Each structure stands twice: as structure tokens, then as C-alpha cells.
Computed example of a mutant assay.
Amino acid sequence: MSVFKDKVCVITGAASGMGRELALQLAAQGAVLAISDVNETGLEETKSMVGAGNRILVDVLDVSDKAAIAAYPAKVEAALGPADFVFNNAGMTRVGDVVNTPLESMEQIIDVNFWGVVRMTKGFLPQLIQTKGVVTNISSLFGFIAYHGQAHYCASKFAVRGFTETLALEMEEAETGVGVCCVHPGGVQTNVARNAVVDHMPDGTSKSELDADFDDLAITPVDKAVQIILAGTAKRKKRIVVGSDAKIASFLQRLMPVSYQKILAKYTKGKALGASN
């Protein structure tokens, strides 16, 4: 029997990509779902795909909205019971180098990708301590490595990694029984890169070329990526690396912490890597 059966599973960013696939696979395993996203249309599509066989709570929710996140855990508990699993999947990316990207764009990425994770985790921790549940935070391949044009995204995902690994240590030392997982997907076949806002493109490069490069490098099907995430969450693995590209990048960064970028440039053949949520 699945460890997720009849368990309350909270998923942000559930309108598309890995968030939607998490909802579908968890529903198939008999989970009780609380799904949210800023995209109401996509969220309703996910609800329709889940079908009527599962208890489900649907909310249009912006993880950068402090007040909304502060009120959300109590709403979930009142409707479904205390959370057993929280999947902090919501995220976004923009494209642009540090010099040419407005500060406001960088702040938006950090607010969604990092502070969204922190707000949700803090909000649901009392429930997770009560249920001895698990929080699974989505970092990235870019939580291991730096990459040009992605300084804001890399910063947010490095921050998610640092926050999550520290939380895991604290939960373990306090013997709370809470599992804490940090997920590092490589290129997953979702539309997040295509939906990226472009602040600045390198000279001679078009957005269509960027999208084509990402398609070439998105080697992991979304259903396979989510299977890996759920298997790791069920086992309460502290680090879940998704895809051979993420495994290679992690290995190279640890082996050659300074020169890995030259090796990866050859591996990608100058193509732009992308995000996965």
C-alpha cells in the first residue's frame, strides 16, 4: 500500500508541469490533495484531470503573498485535516545577465522561489510536527552550479538548498519525526523555460533558440521525474537528484568546484540550460 494513501498532500504550483504531475500521481495513490497555483485556469484543468475519486481542495494562491500564505495552513487543516506531506514546487524563472537585469526582476525570483518555500514551510511545520510528516522542497540542478543568464534563479535555488538542508538538521536534532527532502531536478520536459520572462538576451540569440536549446536538454520526462521525487519522499531522502544531467553536474561541481563550468560548457555545447518546475 502506498505511503500516500489517505494522507493530506499539499502541492504548490499545481497548474502545470511537475506540480500537476505530482497531483495526478498522488491522486492515483489515493492521497487527499490540497492544490494551489496563481494560474486559475490551469488549476481547474488539473482538478478535472484528477477526477472526482479523491478529496481535493483547490485554491488560487500566490506564494509571494505573505498574508495569503499565513492564512492557508489553517484553511487546509479545517477542510482536510493536518498536512502529512507538503510539496513546495511553485517556482518561476527569468532570463538575463546581472548587468542588464532590473533589480525588481531579481527580487521577484527570490520572493517566489525562495521566500515562497520558506513561508509555506514555516506555515505548515506545526502540522507536520503533529503528523510526523514530510516537507519536500524543489531546488534545482541550479542549486548545485552557477550558469550565465540565471544568476537570480541560481541564487534562489542555492538558497532553497541551504534552507532545506539546515531545516533537515534541526528537525533531526530536535527528534521531531519530520522528514525534510531537497529535490534537484535537471532538465525536465515542462514548459517552465518557455514561459520564462526575458529581461535580456545575449547578442545574436533569440527566445526561440533558447526554447529549442532547452527542449534538446530536457531529457527527463515529467512523469519519470515525479516518480523519482515521490519515491525519494516516501523514503524521506534528504537529497533527491533527478536526471543524469543533474547527477553529472553535482559530481563535477564536487570534484572540480572552480573549473566545472568549463566542462559543463562543453557538455551543453553552449546551449542554455533551463529550469524544471
Score class of each variant (00 low, 15 high):
Arg254Ile: 01
Lys224Pro: 13
Gln261Asn: 15
Leu230Glu: 12
Asn88Val: 02
Ala23Thr: 06
Glu104Ala: 15
Leu255Val: 01
Asp84Met: 05
Leu43Cys: 07
Ala272Pro: 06
Val198Gly: 02
Ala70Cys: 03
Tyr72Pro: 07
Gly116Pro: 05
Ala193Gly: 06
Gly274Asn: 01
Ser208Met: 13
Ala275Gln: 02
Tyr267Gln: 06
Val135Ala: 01
Gln29Trp: 10
Gly187Gln: 03
Ala265Tyr: 07
Ser36Arg: 06
Gly232Trp: 01
Ala212Gly: 09
Lys66Asn: 12
Ile228Pro: 13
Ile56His: 08
Asp223Glu: 15
Thr268Val: 15
Asn88Gly: 14
Ser276Thr: 00
Thr268Arg: 14
Leu33Ile: 07
Ala15Asp: 01
Pro257Phe: 01
Asp216Ser: 05
Ala168His: 06
Lys122Met: 15
Ile11Cys: 05
Phe142Asn: 10
Glu170Asn: 10
Ser64Pro: 13
Ile138Met: 10
Ile11His: 04
Thr164Gln: 05
Thr176Cys: 05
Asn191His: 11
Ala159His: 11
Leu217Val: 00
Phe144His: 03
Ala27Ser: 10
Asp6Trp: 11
Pro73Asn: 02
Met120Asn: 03
Ala218Gln: 04
Thr233Ser: 13
Leu103Phe: 08
Lys235Glu: 10
Glu21Ile: 09
Asp211Ile: 12
Val160Gln: 02
Glu77Gly: 07
His200Met: 14
Val222Met: 06
Asp111Val: 07
Gly274Asp: 07
Gly243Glu: 04
Phe251Leu: 08
Ala168Thr: 10
Lys5Val: 05
Thr220Asn: 10
Ile263Arg: 14
Asn100Glu: 14
Leu230Trp: 07
Gly53Ala: 13
Leu103Ile: 09
Leu125His: 09
Asn39Asp: 14
